[in-house]
Design a protein around this nucleic acid. Structure first.
Lengths: 149, 149
DNA sequence: TTCTACTTGCAATTGAGTTGCAAAAGCATT
DNA sequence: AATGCTTTTGCAACTCAATTGCAAGTAGAA
C-alpha cells in the first residue's frame, strides 16, 4: 500500500504494531495526520486533507475507532456535536487525553489544553465514573482578532 | 391555550414574562417540565412525556432555544451527542449551569453535579472564553447495580 | 375588536455517524 | 511466491438529531 514519506512514518508503523493492529493505509494515514497536526481533528478534517489518498468516509471512521479502542488516540465530542480525535507524541502509547479542550466557535479548530488536567469530581455514592471530558469554547486568538475588525 | 395545573404554573408564567417571552403553550410546557424534572431533559424526553400535549417536534426545539437565549435554562451536549436542557429553581432567573453534569451511558439520564462548579481553565493569551461544559460519564447508581447482576 | 409581529405546524433538508455485505488486502505459514 | 484464513475496505443504504422555509395561527398591545 502506497503511503506518504513523512517524518512519522516509522513511528506510526511501530505504534500500530505495538498495539496489535494491522498496518493498513488508512490507519497509517489517520495516525500520521493526528500526530503531525498540532490539534485534534474531526472526521471531516481528516477527509479534507490533500494527502487523504481518497479513503472512503467509512474507512476513516473505522480507522479512528480502531485507534481509539487501542488507546492510541483520545476523542472529545465538542459543543457543536462533532467528535474530534487527538494524538500527542508525548502521551503515547497510553494517551489519556485527560485534559480540557478548547473549541473555537468561528474556525471550528480544537486545541488541547494540556496544562489543564481535569479536576476530580464528586459524584453520588454508587455511581461508576468511566470517563470525563471538558470543553471550553469561544474564540481562538486569531478569530478573536478578526472579530474585532 | 390549555395547560396543566401543576405546581409551577404560576412560576413559569412569571419567569417567561420577566424575560420578555410571550406566554405560549409550548414554552410553558417546556419550562414547566424542566423545572419539575429533577434532571436535564433532552428534546426526545420532552416529546415523550404524557403531558406534552402533542406539540410539534420543531416547536419544542424552538421553545428550548428561546428559553436558552433568555437564560432561563442551560444546556449541555452529552458524549452521546444529544443536547439536554436543565433548569434549576434555585439558579433562576440567571441560571448559569456552571457545574459539571453526569451522563449515564445505560439509561441515558443526565444529572447536574451542582456540588462541582467548573474549575478555572488557563487558555492561551488572546483567547476569548465564552463558556465551558464538563461531562462525566459512566453508570448511575441504579444502572451500576443492575450491571452487576 | 383589530392589527401586527411573533409563533406554530408541516414538510423537506442537512449532516454526523452507523450497518451489512461482497470484494480486497494483511500476514502467518508453507 | 503461492496458500489460506482473518481482518479490512468500499459502497450503498440507513438512522437520528437538529435546522430551515413558509403558510396558517395566535399573543398581546392599541
Amino acid at each position: 500500500m502506497k503511503r506518504g514519506n513523512s517524518s512519522h512514518d516509522a513511528e506510526t508503523a511501530e505504534l500500530l504494531r505495538r498495539v496489535g493492529l494491522r498496518l493498513t493505509g488508512s490507519r497509517r494515514y489517520v495516525l500520521e495526520a493526528l500526530l503531525q497536526s498540532g490539534h485534534p481533528l474531526s472526521h471531516q478534517e481528516l477527509l479534507g486533507r490533500r494527502d487523504s489518498l481518497r479513503f472512503d468516509r467509512v474507512t476513516i471512521y473505522r480507522a479512528l475507532l480502531a485507534l481509539k479502542r487501542k488507546g492510541l488516540v483520545h476523542d472529545v465530542k465538542g459543543t457543536d456535536g462533532i467528535r474530534r480525535f487527538g494524538a500527542h507524541p508525548t502521551d503515547l502509547p497510553h494517551c489519556p487525553g485527560n485534559h480540557a479542550h478548547f473549541l473555537c466557535r468561528r474556525c471550528g479548530r480544537m486545541f488541547c489544553l494540556t496544562e489543564s488536567p481535569l479536576p476530580w469530581v464528586e459524584v453520588p455514592a454508587g455511581t461508576t465514573v468511566e470517563g470525563k471530558q471538558m470543553v471550553v469554547y469561544g474564540l481562538c486568538p486569531q478569530c478573536a482578532r478578526r472579530e474585532n475588525d
